[in-house]
Design a protein around this nucleic acid. Sequence first.
DNA 1: ACTACGTCCTGCTTGC
DNA 2: TGCAAGCAGGACGTAG
Length: 280
Amino acid sequence: MPELPEVETVRRGLDPYVRGATVAEVRILHPRVSRRQPGGATELRTRLLGCRVEGLQRRGKYLWLNLDSGEALVLHLGMSGQIRVFEEPVADDPHVRAWFRLEERWIAFRDMRTFGWMMLAPVGPGGLPAPVQHIAADPLSPESDSAAVTRNLTATSRSIKRILLDQEVISGIGNIYADEALWRSRIHFETPGDTLSEAAALGLIGDARDVLAEALDAGGTSFDALYVGVSGQQGWFQRHLSVYGREGEACERCGGPISRVAFTNRSSYLCPACQQRPEG
DNA sequence: ACTACGTCCTGCTTGC
DNA sequence: TGCAAGCAGGACGTAG
């Protein structure tokens, strides 16, 4: 669920509660949350206890806490993950998968669909934890290299939407913002990457960066209760979405109807008039 | 090597 | 009304 703007909103909200704080208590309530940890919940808990958090970073949709042990606690929210901060642990919340106490705050990892995970990992080259090493820079990062991304976008016959969703090419973009960026660039999602001009690819990267930045300013996108910030607040960018979730509504550019079509067991939203399928 | 597909989950919505 | 199928914002392993 959460894409870059939502994850960054969580990072900013969580940062003041964790930076400089020591992990005083760890409760793993569901085994799936620690499934990527080789030693499971026990290892996660024992190696985390007593660690001091030195920082909270993000790359694409991945978050990690830098620990004074030299390791990082890497978190991925998956489709439905949330991080919430409480004064006391909430009893009987069926979706809390883990609790952490840092100083006097209780931090919950909630995740209805349990695709999210967390694991401890060594920090490698570039300050990136091992599970994040393969993830490309995201468009809001100063490390992002538009020329290099452009080359990657146009080097393959894969559909442009698949490439946008490939976190090893450009990170942080998910189904919502891929559709929004493609609409802004008037590109059909099935367009093969290697048929795009360099200018079109560069423009698309710019549109992706713009939509992510605007969504971040709005605190992210909340279609339902599944995405909220650390205090439970909703994001507001859904009011500014041009195509996503707007099947049948008028395209704000040409007035034609927005359509929804199948895309790898999911949906793509587009304006068929503005975003013409490539020939052949 | 590269690409497409199925799969891991739960819960809400839709349609028969 | 009830039930089953469909659908959801992600990423990985595997098969082709």
